[in-house]
Design a protein around this nucleic acid. Sequence first.
DNA 1: TCATAAGAAAACAGATCTGTACACCCCTGT
DNA 2: ACAGGGGTGTACAGATCTGTTTTCTTATGA
Lengths: 182, 182
Amino acid sequence: MPTPRREHLLDTAEQLFYRDGFHATGIDRIQAESGVAKTTLYKHFQSKDALILAVLERASLRVRQELETQAREQEGTGVKRILAPFKDLRDICEESNFNGCLFNNAAAEFMYSNPDIRALAAEHMRWMQSFLERLLLEEGFSTDKALVLLPMYEGLLTLARVQDSSQAIDLTLAAIETLLKA
Amino acid sequence: MPTPRREHLLDTAEQLFYRDGFHATGIDRIQAESGVAKTTLYKHFQSKDALILAVLERASLRVRQELETQAREQEGTGVKRILAPFKDLRDICEESNFNGCLFNNAAAEFMYSNPDIRALAAEHMRWMQSFLERLLLEEGFSTDKALVLLPMYEGLLTLARVQDSSQAIDLTLAAIETLLKA
DNA sequence: TCATAAGAAAACAGATCTGTACACCCCTGT
DNA sequence: ACAGGGGTGTACAGATCTGTTTTCTTATGA
């Protein structure tokens, strides 16, 4: 039973953390933007770091569900199914307030200062790898390719921050195709 | 004539910014760690953001020179020369205090709050692209591939933050080889 | 020798940060 | 009617942040 207030706080926090970064976003700002009293915020999350962890956990779960359902409801087979997540990058990178991969941003800011946050980002990345491996397996490709596709995926998210990367996405799609057919 | 004090400040600042992040690293810490008085720091750099810009500019120049000389003194030809920068990733990712790509970390933290910093990160990335294009051209490959290699490179740097990626590097090297020979 | 300039050290100003305390309000169940 | 829980709003504590000012020392060059 997710209380609506808690969810609303997580929504606001995720938006601000993603857009402006974790250290740059103060609790006061989240409180003001969400319209929820600070007392309530600290009743739901005992510290800022706990709030960050909750945001990341929820976001990770949501991303997984999205990718799962997208892969399940996909019509095509073979290479098409592997390319689908990469095609979706085009829309993701066009979103307003786009700022790369939330989990890598978190890992970068808390690499040596908060092991829990870093571990959560690591776990999300491992899930991404296993998801790609499952996809590859289902379509009859070597699961080894997951460790090539994963950096490509993350790299495109990273590159899109500083330049239009629709062309990079197109070329990567083609590269994956030739790679899988080789 | 780079004054030694200024260089020393840039060294300390770069180390701390890279390891702990830009917002998380205070001026006081840079001052204490470098042993240089705060007055002197603000004589050389008129603000923290100016210091960050100076750090990034110098780091970008250094990376370019390293890649250039490494590419020039390289003995092999053909695919080997393109693979070389990716092979070097193995050492880079093993460094203590490794924390991904400095420029992408900066872009993430200042995406919507400091256009100058974001622009500098973008420029560095464009240089990386043109460097790869030059390498490809010299070895007789299509320069289009640069936009595939660049995300791979950045993605590996990103992935290495949260998991051992020596295997990912190996598989990526093999993938590049098949990609260029196709 | 003495003037000048540069840097060290530390205090300070003012803002902002996380987190807590306190007083009030309002709604619901008994 | 009324007790109690949950939320609001605000003030506050204590730390830390950027950036300035002030005072003192020290080195150098005429």
